[in-house]
Design a protein around this nucleic acid. Structure first.
Lengths: 344, 344
DNA sequence: ATTAGTTGCGCAAACGATTGCGTAATTCTT
DNA sequence: AAGAATTACGCAATCGTTTGCGCAACTAAT
């Protein structure tokens, strides 16, 4: 509340005009170096702090980038934010983070709020309730570029950044099948999200390509983590011959890992475990988990670069970018030669 | 970039003045309900979006709350952010998150940036390099309230919110000693942080109160998680009779847990494990880890409430608030009756 | 010595909203 | 019916900057 020092104050003190002071501080060529030095010193002495709101009112931009995530889940999102943050800061923007709590109502509210703030760009990870992208039109109207990432939808009106979810699902199935696993469980997220359906689709395709049957009862769709316990128990009862489990996220991985351990299941001797992961959790679980690495930091960094590019070049070329994943082989998958032999 | 609709545009279209339009939209009693309705409709039709920067330039506030964290570590910070976020949103503020990467230089830069933004308040988790609080004076000068949380310093000039770190350290030691553990390892964070030193101090006191010796070689100070492996190995070699390990954070917990598992150590049969934790990780590790729960969400919520109180009541009563912790007994600590008997 | 060019600075408008004050038209009072 | 009170709106200043333009003073060129 303490009224801040303004350009006018400096100007008055020095007997100059605010225009001159402003230009001096901006190192404008019209101002003599003597004056510049003087202005700089008194600004310093008077503890002058520029008012960005006033500054950016005239400019058409705010150097603010908004990120809306459904939740700060424990694994992927924090690394993603780290990545985004780094790039955003490097380019002299600020990141403002919102959380939609997986609610479309909140998501709509937040998107609208971005326009109020005149954010220069918006990064959006869709909530699980989001069924269409109409609420993003207001951003288009304001000329605010949007990039959808991680949890996206099919769209030709927005740039999206994901991994090739279907391909990654296929790779997972293929990897396990090639190591002799023919009876496995696939644990997937909320089926309303495209990411879940794509990874599942790929997982199915991996099976069919290899001629391995894969039935509905081998699929677990987990909308809330608390459901996992019961569903996993049931599936393992129905399929006592399960030799491998695939989890499509870190959250699912760590909880599955725990439930298996509690059951006394040895990994990988009894059941192999394979995941899509940001690459942190696999290293503190025992044994370390073989996974397809999907780096949150990298996703964040690339996304931020792209958004900033869109902002600064005013481009709205719609792209659909796929981040590569890398296979990290650790100790959680066992090769079943017998089973393999039997199949041949 | 598409130039947005302003009050002036609406006014022109309706043959009114901007003043009337502004008041109509603000539901000012001076305006007739007929006019209000008309204005609201055209505003809607023209897709009018208020410009918050202009709005808040006159007001002395921005409804922006800044949070500076050293890093988005995988456990405590995300839950804390969730908690903060909830309260901030409920009170119609927005949260803007910055990351200092544990660098004092960045922290300084970010604090200064908060003044540029005219944030209404600042939440600060100190970086490990921060040795004094001088860089916060500029906030005081601007009348921006600050609350230090989680990783703080001794100060009588700022409100701080932590758990009673020393007491919690003491409780941890006491808990383990009462269950017959007299040879334990304590794993602590960066020693430059007060939080580490306090928890260690309490841990020591717990020992001395119970008359149990506790030497330097039983202490591991981990500034970077990569050092843990080597230091833990060495300590376990020096103290092969170690029957319990205490970790002061979730990060240290999960990595310690992994290293122990890799060594083939059974928990709790061979070594008991006890932690201070946000309460998530203990449930996905096997066995579940007995811990003193230190809820990030609660810390975040309470902190946000306090800061908002300071903002809105313009109070600068310096407080030092302690969040309570709760003991959650799960399966990672074994009672050593033999050892206990021997001691008596 | 006159013209032309440069240097250094101020005036004032503008960004988009809010708000104290003034005022015309209407309604109420007695 | 004349004054008082109310209603509904507009004028213009204001928040703190930036910036196009104008202009005086000085230097350089002819």
């Amino acid at each position: 509340m303490a009224n801040r020092v303004t350009l006018k104050d400096i100007a008055r003190k020095l007997g100059l005009s605010t225009a001159t002071v402003s230009r001096a501080l901006a190192d404008h060529p019209d101002i003599s170096s003597a004056t510049k030095e003087q202005v700089r010193q008194t600004a310093q002495a008077m503890a002058y702090i520029p008012n960005y709101r006033a500054k950016y009112m005239r400019a058409k931009h705010s150097r603010l980038i908004a990120l809306i995530v459904p939740e700060m889940n424990t694994f992927f999102v924090p690394s993603m934010i780290s990545g985004i943050n780094r790039v955003v800061q490097q380019n002299d923007y600020s990141l403002i983070v919102f959380q939609s709590d997986n609610s479309i109502v909140q998501e709509r509210r937040l998107v609208e709020y971005c326009t109020h703030l005149s954010a220069d760009g918006v990064l959006l990870v869709l909530s699980s309730e989001t069924a269409d992208l109409q609420h993003l039109e207001v951003l288009k109207d304001c000329g605010i570029p949007v990039v959808l990432l991680d949890r996206t939808m099919d769209t030709d009106r927005h740039t999206t950044i994901t991994i090739d979810d279907q391909e990654v699902g296929r790779q997972a199935a293929t990897y396990l099948i090639e190591r002799g696993h023919t009876r496995m469980l696939g644990i997937f997220g909320d089926h309303r999200q495209r990411i879940s359906e794509l990874r599942l689709k790929g997982f199915r395709r991996g099976h069919s390509e290899q001629g391995v049957p894969f039935g509905e009862s081998q699929i677990l769709r987990i909308a809330m983590i608390s459901e996992l316990d019961q569903l996993l128990n049931r599936a393992l009862t129905v399929h006592p011959d399960t030799s491998a489990i695939f989890t499509m996220t870190d959250d699912l991985l760590v909880h599955t890992h725990h439930l298996l351990s509690r059951r006394g299941v040895r990994i990988p001797e009894d059941i192999s475990l394979f995941a899509i992961s940001d690459g942190q959790a696999p290293f503190f679980l025992h044994p370390n988990i073989t996974h397809l690495r999907h780096s949150g930091v990298e996703v964040g960094e690339r996304t931020a670069h792209i958004l900033i590019g869109m902002i600064e070049h005013n481009s709205d070329a719609m792209m659909d970018i796929r981040i590569r994943t890398t296979l990290v082989e650790l100790g959680s998958v066992e090769t079943r030669t017998k089973a393999l032999a039997a199949r041949r």
